[in-house]
């Protein structure tokens, strides 16, 4: 049984810049007609360098900003936040985890309140049950119930990212947008968080849109890969197809630029250095 959770058709996002007294208004095309779809329980990785429009796309998918044109379907329902108000049901379906674990948690909110807030706003679950659910979620992401009453600054970057993931899962979303979730983390912590994401995906049949610039992480976690370059999707296909046979020259440049940490490459480099 396959079920398409997210489908995007020809998404476009333009920004209008300037238009002040002295400057002429310009239009910047941040996303230029991108289409893709993700099935339930799968991971789509969106790869690209800074300024390629991947974060803009993330904000559109997460229903934070509207698309200028194009259709966005979540669980088969068309969503258009530019023209109609977002219903709480749709709001619950998509959640996001940000890159910077230090900026994404409110410094004045206890962890318990961070986790309880989505339930408090969107449901009329009583306080006691909110608390129970938050406790259960803390355990699920590898933290302990005694963390419930602490403030974000008492946690390390990796733990904060676990909290951010827990908050995103409180509303039982069907789609989770992960905007560079491990880029700011140390290597060993990165491995733990990636494992956690994989465990949660198995358990809840979650669908991920994983935005990253790190190809080795993408190769590890993704089912499908989309490469973006200046607002366009230059390459889109299954992970194996993209990694084994990149079609677009930019994808090849990207692969060539990624530092390789295997013994053969080191040997080759040292040999070349000796020869020079």
């Amino acid at each position: 049984m396959t079920q398409t959770v997210l489908q995007a058709k020809n998404l476009v996002r333009d920004y209008h810049v300037g238009g002040g007294l002295l400057t002429k208004a310009r239009t910047v095309h941040a996303v230029k007609g991108v289409s893709f779809s993700v099935e339930k329980g799968k991971t789509l990785a969106i790869v690209g360098e800074s300024g390629c429009g991947k974060s803009t796309l993330a904000r559109i998918i997460t229903l934070i900003d509207p698309a200028t044109s194009g259709d966005l379907l979540i669980d088969g329902n068309k969503v258009d936040i530019a023209h109609s108000a977002l219903t709480p049901e749709m709001r619950r379906k998509v959640q996001i985890v940000f890159q910077n674990p230090y900026g994404s948690l409110n410094p004045r909110q206890k962890i318990g309140d961070v986790l309880g807030e989505p339930l408090k706003i969107n449901t009329d679950i009583p306080a006691a049950e909110r608390r129970d659910r938050a406790m259960a979620m803390l355990k699920k992401v590898g933290l302990a119930p005694e963390h419930y009453n602490r403030y974000p600054h008492m946690f390390s970057g990796g733990q904060r990212q676990r909290i951010a993931i827990a908050r995103a899962l409180m509303l039982n979303p069907s789609l989770l947008v992960l905007d560079e979730p491990v880029s700011a983390l140390d290597l060993s912590v990165q491995a733990q968080v990636l494992n956690l994401l994989a465990d949660l995906q198995d358990e809840f049949q979650l669908t991920y849109v994983f935005i990253s610039h790190d190809l080795s992480v993408v190769r590890y976690i993704a089912d499908d890969v989309m490469v973006m370059y200046f607002g366009e999707a230059v390459e889109y296909g299954s992970r194996d197809a993209v990694f084994s046979d990149p079609k677009h020259s930019y994808t090849r440049t990207l692969f060539a630029a990624t530092p390789r940490a295997d013994v053969e490459s080191i040997k080759a480099r040292l040999a070349k250095k000796k020869a020079a």
């Binding site: 290597l187 060993s188 990165q190 491995a191 733990q192 990636l194 494992n195 994989a198 080795s216 992480v217 190769r219 590890y220 976690i221 390789r260 940490a261 295997d262």
Partner: peptide, 19 residues
């Protein structure tokens, strides 16, 4: 050893070894 095996490039199973 832990650092090197935490590299996603070196992943063998579907979980990464952690520190």
């Amino acid at each position: 050893k832990a650092l090197l095996s935490a590299l996603p490039d070196n992943a063998t199973g579907d979980r990464l070894p952690t520190i």
